[in-house]
């Protein structure tokens, strides 16, 4: 058959190229969306600036300088914003608009889609860090823990992103888009206020012990251990791993394409 315009020549692109395309596309869409930017960047910046001002005026009691205690928690909050809330809402509407179903018929395999999403989350984390770290430094942040602390924090970000993204996908894959939108924001607010993510567990009195099992508290604890004491906090990391594994198992059972 002579070659016409549409003569078949089917085939999948190499997986790495597909994942890269997917990650870049999702990043672009996330950064273009005003609500997503609000959750990813504006709210963490406000939490940091507001917390530091409140600390200076004696509004909150912290064990150390407010900016040093709060910055690791705000970075943890930023992970939660993107990996949980943004991902859940975006994925909920992807299901609603048939995008997940459409990609399900494309050469992109399911693990390629997940890698793409993880890639997009990590790129947004970098953008968040680029904004939040200079703001914290301008407010007088002096990170403790040195290079070990930075590496421990990066490890906590990775494990935390895995835990929160599996929970975000669990929500997006089972609820309707509107319900996901409401629930993802509500859970985010509850964890922001009562989840020991920005404020250390010590600030919650007796409840602090119980809060330790929450993924928000675990990520906050791990970030504070890393960036205040330069320590790898094993127990919080294991708690995050447990959430990630449980969430992923539930997602693989319950996620619906449509």
């Amino acid at each position: 058959m002579s070659a016409g315009t549409f003569t078949p020549s089917p085939g999948a692109a190499p997986l790495a190229r597909q994942v890269r395309a997917q990650a870049l596309m999702e990043t672009r869409l996330m950064l273009r969306n005003g609500e997503q930017l609000l959750v990813a960047i504006v709210i963490p910046v406000m939490a940091l600036v507001g917390g530091v001002i409140a600390g200076r005026r004696g509004g909150i009691e912290l064990d150390g300088r407010a900016v040093d205690v709060l910055t690791p928690g705000v970075l943890a909050l930023a992970v939660m914003s993107t990996a949980f809330t943004s991902l859940a809402i975006a994925t909920g509407f992807e299901r609603r608009y048939g995008l997940i179903k459409r990609l399900g018929a494309s050469p992109l395999p399911r693990h390629g889609l997940l890698l793409g999403k993880l890639g997009a989350i990590l790129v947004v984390h970098v953008v968040q860090g680029v904004v939040l770290v200079p703001v914290a430094l301008a407010l007088g942040w002096r990170p403790g823990g040195g290079a070990v602390g930075v590496l421990a924090a990066l490890l906590a970000v990775l494990v935390g992103a895995a835990a929160f993204s599996s929970l975000g996908l669990l929500m997006a894959g089972t609820l309707r888009a509107e319900a996901t939108l409401a629930a993802a924001n509500l859970v985010y607010l509850l964890l922001l206020v009562g989840g020991a993510v920005v404020l250390p567990r010590a600030s919650y009195g007796a409840a602090g012990e119980v809060l330790a099992v929450l993924p928000s508290a675990a990520l906050g604890d791990a970030m504070r251990a890393a960036l205040i004491d330069g320590r790898v906090a094993v127990v919080p990391l294991l708690i995050l791993v447990a959430w990630a594994v449980a969430g992923a198992a539930a997602v693989s059972r319950s996620f619906r394409w449509e």
Binding site: L29, R32, N33, F93, E94, Y97, G98, K101, R102
Partner: peptide, 8 residues
């Protein structure tokens, strides 16, 4: 119907 991101 559908098959794309809402904002794409």
């Amino acid at each position: 119907a559908g098959g794309a991101w809402s904002g794409v």
